[in-house]
Every structure is written in C-alpha cells, then in structure tokens.
C-alpha cells in the first residue's frame, strides 16, 4: 500500500511541478511579503470572457484581434522604489537567461524599459515588459501564442498615449 501511495504521490508531484511559472508569478513568489507591490491578474478564463464582449468601434475590433493571441495577463506595479524593483526583475532575468531572450530595451532621461520574450518553436509564448519611470515600477506579463505578425500589429495599431508622447 505504501509503495502504491508513494508512486501515486510521485506522479502527482511530477505532474504539478512540470508546469512552469510565468515571470510575474516568479517575481511575486520572490517578493511575497512585499506589500508595496500590487498585482493584477487576468486568467485565461477571463480572457475568453473578454473576447466575447462586443467591439464598439474599429479600434476595439483591432484590439480584440490582438487579444485573441493572448491567453493571460498579469501586471505588477509599485508607486515607489522603482529602481529597486527594476533591479530585482533584472536579477530574475539573469537567473533565467536561457528561458528569456531580450526583445528590446531602451533607457532615456526618465525611463528605463526592457521587453523580454520566451519563445517556443519560434513563437513567443510569453512577453514580459518591465519598466521604471519616475520611481514607478511596472511589469506587464502576457502569455499566449504571439508571432511576428502580432508584434507588428501591436506596434502599428495601438495608439500611444498622448501624454507620454509629449
């Protein structure tokens, strides 16, 4: 009986651990006691519900088309200690350098931003953007099946915020 239980438990444990963690889950796990970090999650189930909503105009229709390639989203943000949290995110990336590859990164006078992607068979299955701006910190983490077309659409069809453009 003990042997059977051990085998069963081993199988269940292996199956559970075989599932990977996304970047934000890992980040939050490492900072689980940090009350300054705020996490927002949209699960695959909610993502499906979102896609069921009717588009009001052409922009929303395009947005919905882009969202169709997404499976989940998580956002972590902090209003303070932006530099500190940014460095922490970079450390996690360094630890998982084989998992993520850099997509773009830039830094100017008031903003430091990096976008990392995780690919599987040439398709982006996870996109992570973490940025530090005016002491604010934010991670945006998408999972799904995102190809080059998705990135092109994202860059072309999204309207940048006017306030940030100035």
């Amino acid at each position: 009986m003990k042997r059977a239980l051990t085998i069963g438990c081993t199988i269940v444990f292996t199956a559970a651990t075989a599932m990977a963690q996304d970047f934000v889950s890992r980040y939050m796990w490492e900072n689980k006691h940090d009350t300054l970090l705020h996490c927002v999650s949209v699960s695959p189930k909610m993502m499906e519900e979102v896609l069921k909503t009717d588009a009001k105009d052409e922009v929303q229709e395009e947005m919905r088309n882009i969202m169709m390639d997404l499976k989940s989203m998580q956002i972590v943000s902090s209003q303070t200690k932006g530099d500190f949290y940014f460095n922490k995110a970079e450390k996690i990336i360094e630890k998982n350098i084989n998992r993520f590859e850099p997509f773009i990164s830039f830094n100017d006078s008031n903003e430091n931003c990096r976008i990392m992607v995780r690919k599987k068979e040439g398709v982006i299955i996870e996109l992570v953007m973490f940025s530090h701006k005016n002491d604010h910190f934010r991670i945006i983490n998408f999972t799904g099946c995102m190809n080059e077309h998705f990135i092109d659409n994202l860059a072309k069809t999204m309207i940048p915020k006017q306030e940030d453009k100035d």
Binding site: V40, S43, E49, V50, T53, M63, I75, I115, P160, K161
Partner: peptide, 27 residues
C-alpha cells in the same frame, strides 16, 4: 491565477491599456 476583475469590460480596459503601453514602448 486569481482574477482581479469579475467584469470582462473592466478586464478589457486593463488589457487594452497594457497593450498600449507595450506598443508605445516598441514605437
């Protein structure tokens, strides 16, 4: 994952904003 929003419309707004931010960074 624990859904932060129960209303898909609110979640839609949040996702849109996040996508805009990524788009903005790429641009």
């Amino acid at each position: 994952y624990k859904d932060t929003y129960t209303d898909p419309q609110v979640a839609y707004g949040e996702i849109s904003e996040a996508l805009m931010s990524v788009s903005e960074s790429i641009n």
